[in-house]
């Protein structure tokens, strides 16, 4: 601990198309320590996913900088970067190739990065996410949503990365399956000392998974909180308080 893993400093992302300019991220800064789990919470269009995408070079950075382990990152990102940083996406129905077996999904990153002992690694990766060897030659349509997300996590972990970027990893899953996947992510982080950067609209999920978090609205980070502050409902801004109230469930109109 104590070592800074991810630095995002004054990040701005602007998309231009024709005469339209969309300032998706407007000056966001934070640091994530090695082994820490950091959350970004916001509603749709707040720019939370864009921050993740900008970090791994999938969105253009128009101002500010991102760095990993103190090193600035070049664009396009190097292969070494992707060996250290992997991403798990929201929708396990869309993020797995429908005509690739689990075996193919897992062996492709190994081949790209020139790993040895591929057989062994695939079996180990499946075992780690709680899928037996029996799942190895199945297609995505033969798996449930939770099983698919486990495959997506196995695919990310098979390169032995240090950082996992999680973009709403459980929001497409049922509550009971969500609990299983969150537990799996928690356990893997403890075992491997991974660093997580997690994006979600669900305050409860983020507060369960992350030690610190920022709340984003309209491309800006409106507030940074610790898990303890969130748990005690010590929010500084109105917007965070509104989110907190909404996540408690329905309440009749005030007044």
């Amino acid at each position: 601990m104590g070592e800074v893993m991810i630095t995002v400093d004054g990040l701005e992302v602007t998309f231009r198309r024709g005469g339209d300019t969309v300032r998706a991220v407007r000056g966001v800064s934070f640091e994530v320590m090695r082994g820490e789990s950091f959350g970004i919470v916001g509603e749709s269009g707040s720019g939370k996913s864009t921050v993740l995408r900008a970090f791994c070079g999938l969105a253009p950075t128009s101002a500010g900088s991102v760095a990993m382990g103190g090193q600035g990152l070049q664009t396009p990102r190097s292969a070494a970067f992707f060996r250290q940083v992997q991403m798990v996406f929201q929708d396990p129905y869309a993020s797995l190739h429908p005509r690739h077996t689990v075996d193919k999904v897992l062996s492709e990153p190994l081949a790209i990065h020139g790993f040895d002992r591929r057989e062994e690694r695939i079996e180990q990766a499946l075992a780690e996410v709680g899928l037996g060897a029996g799942f190895r030659f199945r297609y995505p349509h033969q798996l449930s949503g939770g099983q698919r997300q486990r495959v997506a996590i196995a695919r990310a972990l098979i390169l032995e990365p240090q950082v996992l970027l999680l973009d709403e990893p459980t929001s497409a899953l049922d509550a009971s399956i969500q609990a299983e996947v969150l537990n799996l992510l928690d356990r893997l982080r403890a075992e491997r000392g991974l660093t997580y950067l997690m994006v979600s609209h669900d305050l409860a999920v983020v507060s369960h998974m992350c030690e610190r978090l920022i709340v984003m609205q309209h491309g800006r980070a409106v507030e940074e909180l610790s898990r303890a502050a969130l748990a005690a409902h010590r929010a500084e801004t109105d917007y965070t308080r509104k989110l907190l109230a909404a996540s408690e469930g329905y309440s009749p109109a005030p007044g």
Binding site: S176, A179, A204, V205
Partner: peptide
């Protein structure tokens, strides 16, 4: 009851989450 319990809580709850 299982469905209620497996939801993460903002106030902090069990870790690991109880599964169904």
């Amino acid at each position: 009851r299982g469905l209620m319990n497996c939801l993460p809580q903002i106030e902090g709850g069990q870790r690991p989450l109880p599964t169904l």
